[in-house]
Nucleic acid binder design. Structure first.
Lengths: 182, 182, 182, 182
DNA sequence: TATGAATGAGACTTCATTCAT
DNA sequence: AATGAATGAAGTCTCATTCAT
């Protein structure tokens, strides 16, 4: 899986044939099929693995009893810091989302409110009902919150900008002002 | 080109082999090569075509002499409206940006400040130097501005939300508050 | 035909598609088919044309009434000089001989003793029956005579050697000694 | 490789598509690419293989300590006998030399005096410096020596003549007289 | 008579997957 | 359980030839 992660992140799906993944992992090509039914399954399993790791990272130090604002900023900055610290993970997720798997998965999840993203949904619902954030559809809040973050992470990953910690806090604050209900 | 647009937008690059594009266009497979040197060239040419169309759409009704805020909101909403009106175009651009072409092009452009995105860059530079928007690196402002918009457009395209005009204005305003220098 | 000659000589058959030939000739692709039934026919016709030209060149100044040796050396040097003066023609003939056409044509001709090479055959038969040259099968004499010449012409054409007139005469003489009946 | 040898020898490069070679070899089309990077590499590797085999054949029974004449005739007749015994090899080499690969290789080798043909070059240089053969450029001697042999081999291969051993010796002797310094 | 856009068979090559070892 | 050689469908692209204009 880590061989697949490296190859796909760095070169994209179509430059990561199973044979190369096997080579990089130091195993035979057939061996992969003992653990994964198909390339698709490998890709999906790897995706879930990363997702879990990310959720764990976010929950670490989560200020359960602080204000909504604090909790929101914690999540937002944790996520961005995670992506900056793990650029391969970020690039993999991007590749995944921009593929047939990703699109259908995204739709399924959001419509059924399942999956790990439900944490975010819950948070936003609390924010709306407590009039702490603007009264907008959850999905819009979601887009407004994570759109900038993904873009920042991408620019950083591509080395177009070198995000300092100060930038991250600035961005989180700026973004908070966008959704805050004043 | 419109056959390519449809297939690639709806199914992704790797489900759009030249033979299917040709079929959909109602021509022989070889015919495409009379007009495009290679599949790559077809993809790039189509990209530029769409980009031009978008720039035209944005410039229509541009309030040249209005305040910075008005101009900014004009561009932001025009772009989002364009994507909502042309979901295939939007999805095509997304596919393109998430591919080897897109990544290298993006880097080249931003670093060399050429290409159509220079319009945005100019606008932001004006905003920063006139202290109308926060003093952040241009790329961050860019990410903060277009990140949410792309996410909104994506959600709309995937029918996860049906953006009304009211939503668009709300989002533009919310976003303005995020970058505004108060 | 001269467009075909140039392209095929310089780049080989497989880099001389009909479309390029037409372009170089300044006509439409279809126009060629008004004058030649197919690419094969074009190639064959061009071959015959060159062959005729060569036979004409050889016969010019042919010392009809001189000794066998004089006549032989005349033919041999004329031919080599022709190839040196017309490298494109030489390269075309080489390409042709090394192709399905060439091989079958060669066999047909020699077996049926038709075609222009019958001139050479007649000459050699005279030489053998008059005991001027060694008593070897005609085909062997042919090979012994034209093998070196073709090699010399090839080396000259490829710029591996720059044949001076002195060389040509030396070679002709040397070769004469090989077949001469002493 | 032997499937490629047969097809290319008998039908030429362009009637030997990879699919036919694979069929003839009784393997799948992709299998060839496990052993050869490309069709070009297959062709080149096969060429080198044959060349090695030929050099081995020539060196067998080489009369190291005999006179120049003996050594020269040994090489010449060995080569011709090899070609007669292995007509497919001969035809393959011919095809190869008459192709983009062959032409550039030939030029490289002769100019840099590398490759197996250097054996011949050394021999001729000895002959010239010891005044045993005529004082002509090496390339000319080369052409004078191997031109007839190639032609004879070709005629035999095409079944235009059935070379007996006596013929071979006659031809070698005749040729020796052409280059001998008298 | 001339054109040249259109065709589609066929070329080379890649790669997810299988299976005998 | 592990291997990796073999497979062959599918992909991109070329080009001799046709035919409506």
């Amino acid at each position: 899986m880590s061989a697949a992660l490296e190859l796909i992140s760095e070169q994209g799906f179509h430059k990561a044939p199973m044979s190369r993944i096997a080579d990089k992992a130091g195993v035979g090509a057939g061996t992969i099929y003992l653990y994964f039914e198909s390339k698709d399954m490998l890709i999906k399993t790897l995706y879930r693995e990363l997702e879990n790791e990310i959720m764990t990272a976010i929950q670490k130090g989560y200020p359960e009893s602080e204000s909504f604002r604090e909790r929101f900023i914690h999540i937002w900055t944790s996520l961005l810091r995670y992506f900056i610290a793990n650029p391969l993970h970020f690039r993999y997720l991007e590749q995944y989302h921009n593929s047939p798997y990703g699109v259908s998965m995204r739709r399924d999840r959001i419509l059924s409110k399942t999956g790990d993203s439900s944490i975010f949904i819950d948070l936003f619902e609390e924010g709306v009902s407590s009039h702490t954030v603007k009264d907008l559809p959850i999905i819009m809040l979601f887009a407004l919150a994570f759109g900038p973050m993904v873009f920042l992470a991408r620019d950083h990953t591509l080395a177009l900008i070198k995000l300092q910690d100060a930038h991250i806090v600035q961005a989180a604050t700026a973004y908070w002002e966008a959704i805050e209900n004043k």
